[in-house]
Design a protein around this nucleic acid. Sequence first.
RNA 1: CGGGGCGUAGCGCAGUGGCUUAGCGCGUCUGCUUUGGGAGCAGAAAGUCGCGGGUUCGACCCCCGCCGCCCCGACCA
Length: 577
Amino acid sequence: MRMSKLVGRRIKEDPKDAKTVSHKFLIRGGYARLVSAGIYSLLPTGKRIVEKIEGIIREEMNRIDGQEVLMPVVLPAELWQESGRYETVGSELLRFKDRNDKPMLLAMTHEEGVVHLARTELGSYKQLPAMLYQIQTKYRDEARPRAGLIRVREFTMKDAYSFHPDQADLEVYYHRCHEAYERIFRRLGMTEVLSIEANSGMMGGKVSHEFMAICDCGEDTVITNKDRSYRANREIAVAAWKFEKPAALPLEKVSTPGKKTIEEVAEFLGVQSENTGKAVFYQDTRTGELVFVLIRGDFEVNETKLGNAVRIGELKFADDAAILAAGAVPGYASPLGVDGKKVKIVVDRSAAESGNLVVGANEADFHYRNFNFDRDLAGVECLVTDIAAVREGDPCPVTGEPLIFSRGIEVGNIFQLGTRYTESMGCTYLDRDGKSHPMVMGCYGIGVGRAMASVMEQAHDEYGPVWPMSIAPWQVEICAITPDKDGVGGVCDRLYDELSGLGVEVLYDDRGEKAGSMFSDADLLGVPFRLVVSPKTLAESQVEFKRRGSRDAERLSLEGLAGVVRGMVERELSLYQ
RNA sequence: CGGGGCGUAGCGCAGUGGCUUAGCGCGUCUGCUUUGGGAGCAGAAAGUCGCGGGUUCGACCCCCGCCGCCCCGACCA
């Protein structure tokens, strides 16, 4: 490619709307342009990278016996009505009607679409397992797109779906796919991607993993220990808390006028927050059922863990009216005197395994000192479990070291779906004995554009991205300094032709710009190898060779240069095989 | 969906109720000079001042409504 003809201008100044590194460089380098919030066009340079990413994904999907398909972006609503999701998914699903008033939608994921295929094309145990995948456009009407290509409304996704005769078969395949994902992210040149166990949900048996690219602009919190032998997302993270139970002192009612929050009460009574118990009320969003939670004052409730513990899909804070109706006083609520038969009581281990806590008295302006779970709640029906949110520095459940919080971008997700879709949509096969069973499904996604942005986040310097050879838009850039002097242009033209002829992807800056100008553009384009040809080096029959991201340059002889450079490109590429 | 910010040339910004024919820098185009980290000089093209309404003799500027974009939060198959 001759730079003089490359579409996608480089921009000297940071665009005002871009805050994250990848967003800035995507715009400044001419990789992508915003069309509407969260909707981008890819320019040639960006498109080349995306194609390489897709190529690597394709190779790895094929390696685990995937078969590529292409499903439509527009699906009839009836397909989603079959699975029930037409009703349950919110406004991020873009619904519309065609000319005949038939309800349609833009698919945000393709479980329904692929089951539509699988239930007609697959019918025998002999055909299983089978994996279908596609690399295709998804639309999700996100409430808040952000950070360039990190979170968008329209995007390209590799989504894969596997079909199995039973759970055991799925688990074997799931593991292969996990390995394939690790290979993919390594080959894309990501420096740090962690697979973390994600919320397994209330259905039990469901397993899923998120692949998190660690970087500061990540939207998610990844919780690990130092050597990363423990990895979890915030929703399911646990810690090896140790609690001490002192000798129980007698329960004592104390006046705490106007003191409602843990901080106020603790300060007023001269104790630490870990010597208090906090009462929190939740409600099942659907049924309105109340859940009373007691947790030690220095902890916060992890709503996902709580939801899993009580098998409620969606919880919200209970309003004061509901709390009063249950016989508790907001601000002074107490586990003492609450009827475990009327209200579900959940006690976090932190409160159950500590002692002599200050808790509410269920009476305005009064608290109790010296609450002890074993003694004071004896005989009350309640669930003792771990529903506490992990805090940075809490002891790791594996090693006991302090837990570390990092930020991560979710670049991939794999999920054991089970029969959620195959049962509702009638996707069955016949076994050896002619008996019909729903297929067991897994699904596996990677956001392609998000992956590109994530590589940028992880591999850049102050001047631009430093693309790994595996996905670089071009492998080599030639900068012709004063192309009309001393035969520079001719040498560059020849070199460009020779390298291209050898199959090397070359970007040739033939514009005759000032050197500084060319170098700045080159940095923004992040091509891994740079050849600088100038009268100075040509006088010694040499050119300058520089790796993007390295300070040092070396000289290479013009003699046989194209072959030498091709060899270097191939060596570099082999690092990503 | 809540909170905040911003909409003036391709990009980044300035601007005042009327001497503004709306400017500045970058970029673009022409010419000359230049060529190792975003050069210099001279000239040029380029704007429905987000949209609609109102106030006014007069609105890019003041008022009302709408739209769009960004950031924080909620949400996120």
